[in-house]
Amino acid sequence: MDAMRIDKWLWAARFFKTRSLAQEEVGLGRVLIAGQRAKPSRDVRVGDRLEIRRGDEVFVVYVEALSNQRGPAEAARKLYRETEESLQAREAAKERRQIAFEPASTIRHGRPTKREGRELRRLREGF
C-alpha cells in the first residue's frame, strides 16, 4: 500500500477518536497537507507533511508509515514523526497555560439553562 485516505490515516494515527470526526476536521480545513486544504478523500503518502489543528494544539508531522488498523498508542506513534519546532511550540503553549489561566476558556456558549437563569435573576435582585 503506497497511499490511503487522509481521514482513515488520522483515525489510525489516533489524532481523532472517530473517522467521521477526522472527516469533519479535514473538511473544515483544520488539517493541511503540504500547507494546502484537502478533502477527506485525499490520499496521503509516506513523506507527506501534515499540519493538524486539534483544539489549541497544532501538530506538524511527517507521515512515516500507513496503516489500515487503529492500534495501540505505541503503534500509532510509529506512523508519524513530529517536527522539533512543533514539539517546542506545544510545550511552550502548555507552560503558558499553566502560568496564566485564560479566563475566556471557561465561558460557555449559548443560552443559559433554566437553573442558570434563576441564579442570574437571584443575583440581580440581590438575593
Rank of each mutant, 00 (worst) to 15 (best):
D56K: 14
L120R: 13
R90V: 12
A89F: 03
E91G: 01
V44I: 15
E74M: 08
L79H: 06
E116C: 00
Q23A: 14
Q69D: 13
R108G: 13
A65V: 03
S67H: 07
G47L: 05
R97Y: 05
K8S: 09
L50A: 06
F59N: 01
T106L: 13
E91P: 00
A76C: 05
E25S: 12
R118D: 02
T18K: 04
E84M: 05
G71L: 15
L32A: 04
G27K: 09
A38K: 11
Y80P: 02
E82N: 05
F15C: 04
E125V: 05
A65L: 03
R77T: 15
E85L: 14
G47R: 09
A92H: 10
T106E: 12
V46L: 07
Y62R: 15
G55T: 07
P103Q: 10
A65Y: 01
M1V: 13
E74P: 01
G126E: 07
P72N: 14
R5W: 07
L50G: 06
M1D: 14
G29L: 04
R30V: 02
A92R: 15
I6Q: 03
I107H: 00
K94S: 14
L10S: 06
K114T: 05
R45Q: 14
R121N: 05
P72F: 02
L79T: 02
T113M: 03
I6A: 08
L32Y: 08
R42W: 01
R121G: 00
M1L: 13
L66D: 09
A13I: 03
E125D: 15
L28S: 12
M4S: 06
I52A: 02
D7Y: 07
E82G: 03
Q36C: 06
G110I: 11
E25G: 00
E64F: 00
L123H: 07
I107D: 06
T113G: 10
R70C: 09
R97F: 05
H109K: 11
A38T: 12
F15R: 01
R30D: 11
L10K: 02
L123M: 14
S67E: 13
G117V: 09
K17G: 08
I6P: 00
N68H: 12
V26S: 06
P40S: 07
S105Q: 08
R53C: 10
A73M: 10
A73I: 03
E102L: 09
R70E: 09
G35Q: 05
G55R: 09
A34I: 00
S20T: 15
I33H: 04
S67L: 03
E102M: 03
V61Y: 10
P103H: 13
S41W: 01
A65N: 07
R49S: 11
T106W: 05
E91A: 15
G35A: 07
R70W: 10
K114W: 00
L87C: 08
I52S: 00
A13F: 08
R54D: 13
A104C: 02
K114S: 11
D7S: 07
V58W: 03
R96H: 04
P103F: 11
R81H: 10
R49A: 14
R124S: 03
G71S: 13
G47W: 08
E57K: 14
W11L: 04
E64T: 03
R97H: 12
Y62P: 00
L79I: 06
R77A: 12
R70M: 11
L32F: 11
A73W: 11
S67A: 15
K8N: 07
R111D: 07
E84S: 14
Q36M: 12
R14T: 09
W11P: 01
Q23T: 13
D43Q: 14
R19K: 11
A92D: 15
F127I: 10
